[in-house]
Design a binder for these strands. Structure first.
Lengths: 205, 205
DNA sequence: GTCTATAATTTGATAGAC
DNA sequence: GTCTATCAAATTATAGAC
């Protein structure tokens, strides 16, 4: 049974509000007052539960990073055949992006703002995509002759790019291609199958 | 003969400094004081030449948008054969991205922050990528049977994604793939040829 | 825990001398 | 045009009552 809004504790309301404001405006553009308003409480309480803006931001960023990164590894390191991995990755990642439309932008944004801070954290070391397994698998498939010669690094970049970029470039894409929200959503749904098909057509021998 | 730093007018120094600060921190994260320091002048002079932060930002954003968007159209609307268009696009765009490493992030960032404002401007209407020509060309090639059946919208998204995304995700990519700056640059150079090859392998019949 | 009131700091913007 | 000094507004953070 899910708690309704009235049942939520203050801390839960703050986290929910902070997530909304930080992910839509970024750290620099977010306002503590907006978070308080969104949560229906006052500013002082924000500082009672979370020391300062920076601390609150870090909690939210880690929550969102959990959604963005770890799933990649669990798929990439599984024992699935290469083509199935690619299919699973696209399908699950697009699901995640559609559930959290601002996720990719938020993460990329903050990583560009201050790359060292997060990327050198112990959490990052443990949870960043570790593509070594996938790269080795690609090399084996090339040796076996099931796929053509291609540098695994590029194949990996192609896959990630085609899956994630449209969500970051959504405003531009919608305008240039004259898509309303429903149309954009439909196109993203199609990409679950389109991207694997596109890749496999290119590399299968 | 290029002017050296001492010869630059105050206005030129401001524009150069503002470009640096805005493109690395975004509108919300940029500080007028930082721009003044970077330009080697004081804050008051910023307001003398450019009314306020918003006006200064708009000048910089339009300058950068000029670099990001118009070239797409000139290639997409040219009379080149499809495969050559794809090759030219990748080559020229990667050149532009390497010349201005923060360009893609900056543009995508501000479009996500306030999509309506820029995308509804008359400049945007005239200069946003208008892919209709390219889409028609793809449809003709499919009819002729030179490429397989594929939705032009997806082909276009694939092309844009593979070209632009690695520059936005640079910090993550470098960390995950353990690349230093030189290695990253080398990989991006390779992509000038790699992306067209990857696409053509997938769609050529 | 939660609030009101207020302090402290940061930041954008202006006044006025030269 | 360019500067110093200062203001005004916005924003984060805290004190203290309940």
């Amino acid at each position: 049974m899910v708690k309704n809004k009235i049942d939520k504790t203050a801390e839960e309301k703050i986290l929910l509000a902070a997530k909304k404001v930080f992910t839509t405006h970024g750290m620099a553009g977010a306002r503590m007052q907006d978070i308080a308003d969104e949560a229906g409480i006052n500013k002082a309480l924000l500082h009672y539960y979370f020391k300062d803006k920076e601390k609150l931001f870090e909690v939210i960023f880690m929550e969102e990073a959990q959604k963005f990164f770890p799933k990649i590894n669990s798929i990439f390191e599984s024992a699935l055949p290469l083509f199935e991995k690619i299919e699973r990755f696209c399908d699950e990642y697009i699901t995640e992006m559609m559930r959290h439309p601002y996720l990719a932008w938020f993460i990329m944004n903050e990583l560009n703002r201050d790359p060292e801070k997060f990327l050198n954290s112990s959490w990052a070391k443990a949870n960043l995509p570790n593509p070594i397994r996938l790269v080795e698998q690609m090399e084996r498939e090339i040796k076996k002759g099931t796929i053509r010669r291609i540098q695994p690094v590029h194949l990996l970049m192609h896959l990630l790019s085609m899956t994630v970029f449209p969500f970051i470039a959504k405003p531009m894409m919608q305008k240039a291609l004259q898509m309303d929200d429903a149309h954009f959503k439909k196109i993203m749904e199609e990409r679950r199958k389109e991207i694997p098909r596109f890749i496999i057509e290119s590399i299968r021998k």
